[in-house]
Nucleic acid binder design. Structure first.
Lengths: 398, 398
DNA sequence: TGACTTTGTGCCGACACTAAACAAAATACG
DNA sequence: CGTATTTTGTTTAGTGTCGGCACAAAGTCA
């Protein structure tokens, strides 16, 4: 007599993304009857995933007030991990993108990927032991294109890893080694993805991308530029995981040579090093290039040389974004890393360039927004790990 | 006691695309029991959409031979129409992409779009009267980007139409005026789309794109270059119908100026006029540029100047395709128009350029194929018109 | 206080599908 | 040539999910 099994996944996703604060709007969003929505909510509560408030929320409007739906505070979590040029970070993340516990770890990233993957997984396993939370999956974000379906890192940027490192397999093996439990009997199977892709997913679910149908994200790390596309709520990673490698769009035909064989690629023309160079600053070794570029932009934007350099980079970034708009026609663009800082410094210039150089930009220009989530790659890794639960809670939880 | 209503749409699509020749494979493809597949087939037959052969097909293998499923020969049709630089064409198209009747019409395309839209719809209505077939929808292909959701033609290429012509509204009004019946009581509501987009849809369903998950199509008309993307069986037209405007990718930084403000765009560097010019031929006024370019390629490929021109265009096209591969990561590419002819002339050169300039092309290059369907834009217009029936046959047919 | 509005729940039936047994029509094998 | 085997199709009964509807609950409004 259990009702509402088919709508279980969609309902959980609505609560997860905060789009269903009450059973009444859950009813409307799912397009089902109140009876079904009530049954679905009861089932999700029985599974320990959400809570239905005992006291109705204060009713501002007419009619019987609704009870509030929210993510269960003590519910299950997933293990989220991120590896970047300066080290790693591990965290436990609950539904709703809530960071439950984190373990920052800094170390020089070794040339052997398995070392650091073991370390980050061990840190996550430690958090699980400390908190005693149930773990339903694991996700890992790496600064590299990750080929599907084999899960190899094709261009592990500045990690001194060998190209083609089997990161997905190493991650899953590390989870087994550390005894991280999966939803069923055996160990968890981990998902490994590109950090910008996962950041886009996180921004779409919980950040500046909420509600966008076709969301384009572009971000710099310390070097190079990454892109990601979320279509109708799902990450578009192409037929083999290699979509949105936007770094080699031509944005300055007479520009710097790029290792790809062309000249003036987005990668070499708009990353932090390009900005520092354009501003006439020799990058120092003490902090990351991204940090130096951000600091320069924040503290010396009054300096004409710095400002001119910023405008130059913005113009080239705008050219690249316009090209992407012509191809992808997104309804929102989100920028991260240095690009986000450049957008903050002069929002109008970038929007104007994009509108001017995209074919139909004049009629209705695309909103360009800064990303809003802290640790969005990490949260995105968690989102990927949650995905099987969101797709079918019953199969995962039994 | 009617079984198999939910699976009706998917089942019809399988028969429509020829992927379900028998009830046995229909069972496997739908992932249901034989009982359900049988009921679904019976329901579709009762609706007059498919036929189940009385005699079993000659059995080559063991076991009871399967009865053949096929599209009902005398079944309903949709009205498909296409407008291009040289005139228009109207046709009735059944399921399976079968052209049932066609009415080619040539006229100089007038500056007022409503005239020719009325004419093409009137031609289609004539076919309906002649054949007496039931009409379930209508689709129109135009050589222009069509903005959604308002259905206006933004850049009606070489049709001397005003930019922003409300083609979708004009088409629907013409259908009402000509008395073309829709599935229900009132007149049909027409779908209007870009011709390359619709061609891609047709190739994906019935042509060289069958089975591709992420299909990229690039084609020239007489002038300019169009692109289209089919993702998981659905056309990706972006958030406002303007995706895959690929004509302004930079493929020759020092190239010809383009009306978009840049230089060396795919549009001006790889279209028929670019080829004729590169080969040192002055285009004549008698036949279309596309025809002249194709003829030149076919008859004088031995001429070193012609061959050099072809290779130049191929190299630039390859650069553009490589850029698209880096962004979209399709698992197949289909070329039309002059690009198709260039591919036929020297398949290896184009594939080599794309593999060399796409980031991960060396590891596993993308298949590049010529389009295989005659009148693929017209068939694609029909596909768009069929879509509501494929999505939910019962609602449309009652 | 009573009418109205909105939310939540219990009960019943519709219905799409599965499961399992049976029937049919071919090939394979003795 | 007849029987076993394999594969396909159909019938029947059963199951689970959801919609419809009536009713209850909990607030606002007059």
């Amino acid at each position: 007599m259990e009702r509402g099994r088919g709508a279980l996944g969609p309902a959980l996703e609505l609560v997860h993304t905060g789009r269903a604060p009450t059973r009444a709007v859950l009813t409307a969003e799912l397009g089902v009857t109140r009876a079904t929505a009530g049954a679905v909510a009861a089932e999700l509560e029985a599974l320990g995933l959400i809570t239905v408030d005992a006291r109705p929320a204060a009713a501002g409007s007419q009619g019987r007030p609704s009870h509030r739906l929210s993510v269960a505070p003590g519910g299950p979590v997933v293990l989220a991990a991120q590896i970047h040029a300066d080290g790693f970070r591990a965290a436990l993340v609950g539904l709703g993108g809530r960071m439950v516990a984190t373990a920052p770890g800094c170390m020089t990233v070794p040339a052997d990927p398995s070392h650091i993957i073991d370390a980050v997984v061990e840190a996550g396993a430690g958090l699980l032991r400390e908190t005693g939370r149930r773990c339903l999956g694991a996700g890992l974000a790496v600064p590299s294109a990750v080929a599907e379906p084999d899960g190899t890192a094709l261009n592990p940027l500045h990690l001194s890893w060998p190209a083609g490192a089997p990161v997905s397999r190493l991650f899953t093996e590390a989870l087994a080694k550390a005894g991280v439990p999966g939803p069923g009997e055996g160990p968890a199977t981990g998902f490994t993805g590109n950090d910008v892709n996962l950041a886009a997913l996180a921004e779409h679910r919980h950040g500046a991308g909420r509600g966008a149908r076709h969301l384009l994200c572009v971000a710099t790390g310390h070097r190079g530029v990454g892109g990601a596309l979320v279509l109708d709520g799902r990450l578009h990673s192409g037929s083999s995981g290699l979509a949105l490698e936007v770094g080699h769009l031509t944005v300055n035909p007479a520009g710097l040579p790029c290792h790809c064989g062309s000249r003036g690629c987005l990668d070499v023309e708009t990353d932090p090093l390009a900005f520092l160079t354009a501003a006439g600053r020799a990058p120092g070794p003490e902090v990351s290039l991204l940090q130096q570029a951000r600091d320069l932009l924040r503290t010396e934007y009054g300096d004409p040389a710095v400002r001119a350099a910023a405008e130059l980079i913005v113009d080239r970034l705008g050219l690249g974004l316009a090209g992407l708009v012509n191809i992808l026609n997104p309804d929102r663009i989100i920028l991260g890393g240095l690009h986000r800082a450049l957008l903050d410094a002069d929002p109008e210039r970038l929007r104007a360039v994009v509108a001017d150089r995209s074919l139909w930009g004049r009629s209705g220009s695309v909103p360009i927004l800064p990303c809003t989530l802290d640790h969005n790659s990490l949260i995105g890794a968690a989102e990927a790990a949650w995905q099987p639960v969101l797709d079918d809670p019953l199969t995962v939880l039994g």
